[in-house]
Amino acid sequence: MIEASGLRKLYGQTVALDGVDLAVRQGEIFGVLGQSGAGKSTLLRCVNLLERPDSGTVTVAGRELTKLGERELNQARQRIGMVHQHFALLASRTVAGNVAFPLEVMGVGRRERDQRVAELLELVGLGGRGKDHPRQLSGGQKQRVGIARALAGRPEVLLSDEATSALDPGTTESILGLLKSLNRELGLTILLITHEMNVVKSICDSVAIMENGRIRESGGIGELIRTPGSRLTREIFPLPEPAAGHITLTFTGHPEEPVISEVVRKFDVDVNILGGAIEELAAGSVGRLRVDLAGGERDNALTYLRERGLLVEVAG
């Protein structure tokens, strides 16, 4: 649905994007994770060509946007919704007026426009608030208006620029729940940028980790969790660096068998648990356990754990 290849963007001598490749599948929620200055916002703005890359290509829904003229590009952008960090609502307009604005630009008639606005406000949980002004709304309600406005043109893709970073934790959870339901009910492809790991854990199917204008790691959450040395796994489970010989076990789902107990019985090994945690992700449960394993048939025990589907990493 979204393909970016070799994107490079400079601001003077500053390299904001340095050869970025990105692939987002239709119907998934894809998160771009990174700290301030990593290049996330520039990447998002290059996807809908609000920023034109110095080199590279962007293709959305089969159309290579970087080849389009201004008129064709404006038409293509109507299929791409955008949700902003600080809402970007028009203070002089009502809630309904804000949602209707892109429809007015598109030349949609008054009756159809009013009907669409009413549908959208119900969809985002703001039915009956159309006559209010933004100043009368909470932060979460303002973001719901922003989401409704972004959906006005029935987009295939929704871009989210740190949409929850200005919200409190409870409101953040409700907005993420709304995005997840829109993805499921409308088949909407969502590309969101964030510096918050909790956002990725809550709703993302796939993720790219950005740093200094480059993507350091990218893929499905489950795929990356099962990859030795994954940056994502280290971010989710910030365990201390292991000492030589220590073993880190990563597993998905809830084990149906007591594998640690079986390893002790079958291979006569001593297991010392050094730390660990279980996290509930959008992709399912993931656990990570740091152990020291000694004595008995240690190598056979490690083979047994791998055969049971665990990722086994031995330090050093």
Rank of each mutant, 00 (worst) to 15 (best):
R111H: 11
A96G: 15
V95P: 09
G81K: 06
K40N: 15
M106W: 12
L65Y: 11
R93H: 12
S92W: 00
V83K: 02
E70K: 08
R45Y: 10
I80P: 01
L137G: 04
R45K: 11
D114W: 05
A91L: 00
G39Y: 14
D54Y: 09
G81V: 14
M106D: 10
G139N: 02
N48L: 07
L43A: 05
L121G: 12
A96K: 05
R79C: 08
D114K: 12
L121Y: 09
E70D: 12
K131Y: 03
V83G: 05
V99A: 07
G62I: 06
R79T: 03
H86N: 15
Q115H: 08
G109P: 01
G69P: 15
V83Y: 04
G109R: 09
T42W: 15
P102A: 12
E64R: 15
R116S: 02
G125L: 14
E51C: 12
V95W: 08
E72A: 15
A88N: 15
L123G: 00
T42F: 11
G107E: 02
G62D: 12
A88F: 01
T66Y: 08
S55W: 00
T59A: 14
G130I: 00
L44N: 03
R129W: 13
H86M: 10
L121W: 09
V108R: 10
Q78E: 13
A96R: 13
M106A: 14
A88D: 05
G56S: 09
Q136K: 15
G109N: 15
V105N: 04
R77S: 12
H84V: 04
H84F: 15
L68M: 14
